[in-house]
Design a protein around this nucleic acid. Structure first.
Lengths: 107, 107
DNA sequence: CAAAGCTATGTCGAATATGACATAAAGGAA
DNA sequence: TTCCTTTATGTCATATTCGACATAGCTTTG
């Protein structure tokens, strides 16, 4: 992982420990985080293309505006589970989710 | 969702409530579960192709054999997060994870 | 300017996922 | 058969994630 990228991610609230604090190595941490950021970006894109506010999405999935904001921000406190469930609730299908995961994070 | 599939999934421990008990509709529940089963199948395939036991994988990621067994079984108590992290720890890359998610569950 | 609407961020008790452990079950070798 | 290895399943205390709430920032509209 490049130092610049590491600093960018740490600025978002992610923390990196030594290898075994997480699961596996640093490269895997990076892959996981990028994957999450990809889904976060897709969520924002999808929500905006539907013309929804974060509050509307929150109501749709039975959550709160703040959590939707955190999902889109790639906050470490949100799980990939929740991101995927939310995307599915917005009509994104499995195949599209898969494509987003395979692609690099744009942010 | 077909009745036969529903019964198969319920037999694995999944429970289905009315729509709003989950996030969204029944179709989304189904998509999510299939996605999880796809990852579970990939994990088993990957582990076996590496010639690892469940215990070895557990040690590798700092978990326990029972949890690895549950991951592979598609147990509702395991999160997609953990499945993805484990796959990444076994050297599966983001792109391959994405492909598995896009594909239908074989089980 | 103020007010309203949307998004960002921090905190909290409650809900859920976690590793660990025990133990059962299934398979293979002696 | 017994022994050994591997996988499956159930439970539990702890750790993490959750929705909710407060509040701040940021635009836009009047």
């Amino acid at each position: 992982m490049k130092e610049s990228k590491r600093r960018r991610l740490e600025a978002q609230g992610w923390r990196f420990g030594s290898a075994k604090d997480f699961l596996g190595l640093t490269d895997e941490e990076a892959e996981y985080i990028e994957l999450q950021l990809s889904l976060a970006a897709l969520l924002r894109k999808r929500r905006e293309s539907l013309g929804y506010t974060q509050t509307e999405v929150a109501d749709l999935i039975g959550s709160s505006q703040s959590r939707v904001a955190k999902m889109e921000a790639g906050d470490p406190s949100v799980s990939v589970d929740l991101l995927i469930r939310t995307l599915l609730a917005l009509g994104v299908n499995r195949k599209q989710v898969g494509r987003a995961i395979g692609a690099a994070a744009s942010a």
